[in-house]
Amino acid sequence: MKILKLFFIIFFIFSFNHLGANTDDMKIKITKNLRCLICQGQSVYDSDSEFANSMKVLVDKKLNEGFSEKQIYDFFKEKYGEWILYDPELNKNTYILWLLPILIFLIGGAIVVKNFKIRK
C-alpha cells in the first residue's frame, strides 16, 4: 500500500512538472513570435527591454487565465497591429506576402522546364 501511495505521489509530481513544462514551452513559442517594439529586430523572447519583460509577464498571465495561443496573438494584434507578429496570418493584407514566393517558384520552375525541353 505504501508503495502504491508513493507511486501516486511521484506520478502527480511528474504530471504537474509536465503541465508546467507545457506552459513554459508555449510561453517561449509565443514570445519568440512577438516582436519587441523597443529593440526592433529582436523578438520579445530575446529582448530584455522593459517593454519586452512586461510582455513576457502578460503572456504568462494570459496563459494562466486559459487564453489560447491564437487568443493571445489576437490580443496583441488588436493593441499594436499585425506587425507585432513575426509570422503574419494569411489575410487580405498579407496574401501577396504568402503567395508571391510560391508564384515566383512556379514561374521559375516553368522557365527551367521550358529551357530543359528546348535543349532536349
Binding site: L37, I38, F51, N53, S54, M55, V57, K61, K79, Y80
Partner: peptide, 13 residues
C-alpha cells in the same frame, strides 16, 4: 508595477 496595464492601453513607452 509590472507594466501590464500600459500594454492593455496599447502603449509601449
Amino acid at each position: 508595477k509590472e507594466g501590464i496595464n500600459a500594454i492593455e492601453w496599447g502603449a509601449f513607452g
